[in-house]
Design a protein around this nucleic acid. Structure first.
Lengths: 148, 148
DNA sequence: TTTCGATGGTTACAAATGAAACCAGTTTGG
DNA sequence: CCAAACTGGTTTCATTTGTAACCATCGAAA
């Protein structure tokens, strides 16, 4: 192992990215084929389905999206009449977003599919491996949080 | 925990993507600031630095990039005179890519920075956590490979 | 050979993205 | 009170990306 060579195959940032990319891409087929959603749109749907009502800023924080992504995703879902905006009483800059019946229906349809996807992925692992995955992800998340 | 709700915060594909995105984005600052490289360009540089000579197709396989990304990254690195193409003797469709002196110099400069980045990331973890990360990543890679 | 399907690689075009400018509207400090 | 700094959210513009079509060459089979 020469010291001035970087092995891409074992370089953690690369491996992690490739892994996430593969899995995310595979999962995206579900909401893409099903409803023609983009990832930001799916996350918006998912966030609002989970929490009920959120502002765009909260959505961005909860689902790790840049505000322009949120803005565009919200606009598209509104165009589909999957969500509505309600002006805030006290602060007129803020809008409270919530799913409509149609949006909620789409969400309810997606949830089992998402859960099944995750389950099938984890089922391919042994118990120890599953623990390593969950523990490893949590550990890295923790390491990144405390940083900056 | 309601059964028809998906918790994004604990949904593996989402967590993994966010993790990889954060780390990759942070790492990208290194090669972006330093040399103004994009990720595909960095991977191309890294791949050729590691292996010496490769065709575009091989590069794509080794670094998990779509062929158009490879094509464009190679074009840009060639424009910088960081790599050269050599026609294959037997198959005129194929080109063998290799770094020039300048390309190699850039690569040699990047390697320690990349290694330091990875080391500093892992240093924030305990030994057990580190094992979990490495084991978990490997397990998922294995699960994805054997699949399709 | 000739033809036809595969393969290496590039290009064209549309869609997704990020950075920065922007437009309200709100708060703060003088 | 008022200006300046700040915040929620949108828009603009340049860059990046993915898909599909494309060109050239190759290999195999008729």
């Amino acid at each position: 192992m020469e010291p001035d060579i970087l092995e891409l195959e074992s370089f953690l940032p690369y491996r992690l990215y490739r892994l996430a990319d593969t899995i995310s891409r595979e999962f995206s087929r579900i909401y893409k084929e099903r409803h023609g959603l983009t990832r930001p749109e799916w996350r918006t749907l998912s966030g609002l389905g989970e929490r009920g009502t959120m502002t765009a800023t909260e959505l961005g924080e909860q689902s790790a999206m840049h505000k322009t992504k949120v803005s565009r995703a919200v606009a598209e879902l509104e165009r589909r009449r999957w969500l509505t905006r309600t002006a805030d009483e006290n602060d007129r800059r803020v809008e409270h977003l919530a799913l409509t019946k149609a949006g909620l229906a789409a969400y309810r349809e997606m949830v089992p599919l998402a859960k099944a996807f995750e389950r099938e992925l984890l089922e391919r692992l042994s118990v120890e491996e599953r623990m390593a995955v969950v523990g490893g992800v949590a550990a890295l998340e923790g390491a990144l949080e405390e940083k900056s």
